[in-house]
């Protein structure tokens, strides 16, 4: 709808909106996150909902213990390989539309614990992530910022047309395979349909013995 016309109408006391706007307005202001803390970042998540930062101002204070009633998963903390199948399963149990915020360095990439045998190098290996917030831990303000970003994203989702989001399409999956525990690692170690790393295996250059791009694959 033409914005100019809308403004003019509202000056005449007529409020006009579209189905899409109304629908997204309702959704974005009542995001129900899953009560889901994994590690240190979860404490900051709790602090965000408490007195000083008060997440309720953004309509997202109704933390639900059951994934069936939640539509936002805040992956707050380190996802270990032992925990990853459970995280994916929880995600699968959430109804569409569902969103994921990866909170903190660990959820994004493994963070400080990346170098090791038991930490998953980022939850986006198994489930799609909508908003990443860097930080170790991100401050409550950063989490609020992530919420606002997510709200903007929800607001921009079209109900019809080619650009409509996943939950309105039949051809995109809303559940993702759950990895299993293997003898040395998770099987598979990543979901190849979600997680792409571009390799330069075809043209190997000698690695500089310094810093910079030496490890890019």
């Amino acid at each position: 709808m033409d914005q100019q016309l809308k403004i003019e109408l509202s000056q005449q006391g007529i409020f006009a909106t579209t189905m899409e706007e109304l629908y997204n307005w309702g959704r974005k202001n009542s995001v129900w996150p899953l009560t889901f803390g994994l590690a240190c970042c979860a404490i900051e998540m709790i602090a965000t909902t408490m007195a000083r930062y008060d997440l309720a101002r953004f309509g997202a204070e109704v933390f639900r213990p059951s994934p069936r009633q939640a539509d936002l998963m805040i992956v707050a903390g380190t996802v270990t390989k032992k925990m990853a199948p459970q995280v994916v399963r929880l995600y699968n149990q959430m109804p569409e539309p569902k969103y994921v915020i990866a909170m903190g360095a660990c959820a994004i990439s493994g963070g400080p614990f990346k170098q090791g045998y038991s930490v998953l190098k980022g939850i986006d290996r198994y489930i799609p992530v909508d908003v990443h917030i860097p930080g170790c831990p991100p401050r409550p303000e950063a989490l609020i910022d992530a919420f606002i970003t997510l709200q903007k994203k929800i607001d921009a989702q079209a109900l019809t047309g080619e650009a409509r989001p996943r939950h309105l399409r039949d051809d995109t999956p809303s559940e993702f395979p759950v990895p299993t525990y293997g003898a040395h690692d998770l099987q598979p170690a990543k979901n190849p349909t979600l997680w792409h790393i571009t390799t330069n295996a075809t043209s190997p250059k000698p690695l500089p013995t310094g810093t910079d791009e030496s490890g890019r694959d």
């Binding site: 380190t78 270990t80 032992k82 400080p112 170098q115 090791g116 930490v119």
Partner: peptide, 22 residues
């Protein structure tokens, strides 16, 4: 074990100082 982050292994492969943030 759902939050086993191999802290001890990392500390053994780095310096004494670098373990403080861990």
């Amino acid at each position: 074990g759902y939050l086993h982050r191999n802290h001890e292994k990392i500390a053994e492969s780095t310096t004494y100082l670098a373990s403080i943030p861990y």
